[in-house]
């Protein structure tokens, strides 16, 4: 009787995560390979330091392995879950360093990347395309506030200091930007239901 199988690429993310819980090294390797760019990308974007970003990315996989059983697919995909873990760890690391949350040049680069035209991201998911469009159509100062808070984990006070604006204005920009993006995603959801 011959032994055949399927390539690991055909295994859904959730199945790979289920396999990760068993501690099988082959599955663990496959899991890390599949998501390492995503996880490291978030970490390096936030902390801007390769060594620290690697440590955060390693911690992310460690946590994923430990907490795989609490993953809930209704609350987001596996890559989204992993990105959120990496992001939280990265934000904690930045806050612990007590340094400037973001370099102005890095912020500008991130703004360009995030509001880039969808045509250059042909492989993006529909949600990502819609999100990119929604962020791209925000007034520049609102998009900046959203990126500073949402990507770099800056508080409204830090945004206010960085932009040299009143705290209330920073809060309004964050709130308004999030409201618009949420509404845009919700509208897309309705269109698909």
């Amino acid at each position: 009787m011959g032994r055949i199988g399927i390539p690991l690429e055909r295994v859904p993310d959730e199945a790979l995560l289920a396999g990760l819980m068993t501690g099988d090294p082959e599955i663990a390797v496959a899991f890390v390979r599949r998501f390492q760019r995503r996880v490291f990308g978030v970490a390096i974007a936030v902390v801007g330091d390769v060594q620290l970003a690697e440590d955060i990315a390693q911690q992310t996989f460690e946590r994923a392995c430990r907490h795989a059983q609490v993953y809930d697919p209704r609350r987001g995909s596996v890559p989204t879950w992993l990105a959120a873990i990496a992001h939280n760890l990265a934000i904690d690391a930045v806050r612990a360093r007590k340094t400037t949350p973001v370099d102005p040049a890095d912020l500008e680069n991130m703004m360009e990347t995030i509001t880039d035209t969808p045509e250059r991201h042909a492989l993006s998911t529909e949600t990502a395309v819609e999100l990119r469009r929604a962020v791209g159509t925000l007034p520049r100062e609102q998009a900046r506030a959203l990126v500073m808070a949402g990507i770099y984990g800056m508080t409204a006070q830090q945004v206010a200091d960085f932009e040299e604006i009143p705290l209330g204005t920073a809060k309004t920009r964050i709130r308004t930007a999030m409201g618009k993006v949420r509404a845009s995603l919700a509208a897309r959801q309705v269109d698909h239901d």
């Binding site: 390492q36 990308g41 978030v42 987001g76």
Partner: peptide
């Protein structure tokens, strides 16, 4: 969910 989705816009990077 919107906040989590924002991270999808951060580009991947090889470790």
């Amino acid at each position: 969910a919107t906040s989590d989705a924002l991270l999808d816009l951060v580009p991947g990077s090889e470790p």
